[in-house]
Computed example of a mutant assay.
Amino acid sequence: MRDEKKARCTVCRAGMSTPGKRGRPALYCSRSCQARAYRRRKQPPVPAPERPAPTSDARSRRRRQIAEAVWRIAAERGLDAASMREIAAEAGVSLRMVQYHFGSKHQLLVTALHMLHRENERLARTRIHFDPANLRGVLSAMLDEFLPLDAQRAMALRVFSAYYARSLTDPAIAAVFLSDDHPLEELVAGFIATAQESGQTAPGLDAQREADLLVAAAVGLGGDVLHGRRTLDDVRGTLDYHLAKIFTSAEA
């Protein structure tokens, strides 16, 4: 016959040879172990240690990671393809993580748009150098930010185009994307007005109208470059042509 497997105390794990009562297997080797087991059952459970809250830097990096996923989807497939699940998959995180950081899809799309604006402004500041003696050069550099001169600017143009297309059918996005403020046009108008005061421009210009035309032309022509309808050289030549008309001084 095979040796029966020796029972062990459920508390101290010591081997037991004494059978349990009424034919049931024994659980404890002694009354002491039985009392210890009883005390354990009466004690409240020890709570599991809480995960440390993410630091602000870690939270910012995660939000940026998710926003960049929105940018890539918008640039490659349009915002209609940017479901929460698709964004999570593109970012390499769980859907719960996306919902934790942004709450709703609308909030995510709006935040991603604002983050892209801030990123473009940060990069533009590194590329544009203000020179009051050469305001035409400053404006030319500003208009370059609307042209797909590199991968980053091409991606940004595609993302903004996706948001514009979505704003035509989504009032909530339109309220954010098509705001009543025109900070860029105001900035360009301010540069033109400054040039007027120093006699660098043609007489009789309306600085605000000229700014509206310059910005609209740069945005539209940049889109033509993305579609392959125009070359970068052709577009920059058109913008330089209009800048030359603005910066024709009265003396010249």
Rank of each mutant, 00 (worst) to 15 (best):
S83W: 07
M84N: 08
M84T: 00
M84R: 10
M84W: 00
M84F: 01
M84D: 05
R85S: 04
R85C: 00
R85P: 00
R85G: 02
E86K: 08
E86W: 00
I87V: 10
I87K: 04
I87C: 03
I87Q: 04
E90S: 07
E90N: 06
E90F: 09
A91T: 07
A91F: 10
A91C: 06
A91S: 07
G92M: 04
V93C: 02
V93D: 00
V93H: 05
S94K: 08
S94G: 15
S94F: 00
S94T: 14
L95P: 04
L95M: 10
L95N: 12
R96P: 07
R96V: 12
R96F: 02
M97R: 14
M97K: 12
M97N: 12
M97W: 07
M97P: 08
V98A: 04
V98C: 06
V98H: 08
V98Y: 04
Q99E: 10
Q99R: 15
Y100N: 09
Y100R: 15
H101Y: 04
H101D: 14
H101I: 01
H101K: 03
H101T: 08
H101W: 02
H101A: 03
F102N: 14
F102G: 15
G103E: 06
G103L: 03
G103Y: 00
S104W: 01
H106R: 14
H106C: 09
H106W: 02
Q107G: 15
Q107H: 11
Q107L: 09
Q107M: 09
Q107A: 14
L108I: 03
L108N: 05
L108G: 08
L108M: 01
L108R: 01
L108T: 08
L108K: 02
L108Q: 03
L109A: 06
L109P: 15
L109F: 05
L109H: 12
V110E: 00
V110D: 00
T111N: 01
T111F: 02
T111H: 03
T111S: 03
T111C: 02
A112F: 12
L113I: 11
L113C: 11
L113T: 14
L113Q: 14
H114N: 13
H114K: 12
H114A: 13
H114R: 15
M115F: 11
M115E: 15
L116G: 02
L116C: 02
L116K: 06
L116M: 09
L116D: 03
L116W: 12
H117F: 12
H117Q: 13
R118K: 15
R118W: 14
E119Q: 05
E119M: 05
N120G: 09
N120M: 11
E121W: 01
E121Y: 03
E121S: 15
E121T: 13
R122E: 09
R122Q: 10
R122G: 09
R122V: 13
R122L: 11
L123Y: 10
L123H: 07
L123A: 10
A124H: 04
A124C: 04
R125W: 12
R125H: 13
R125E: 14
T126A: 11
T126I: 11
T126V: 12
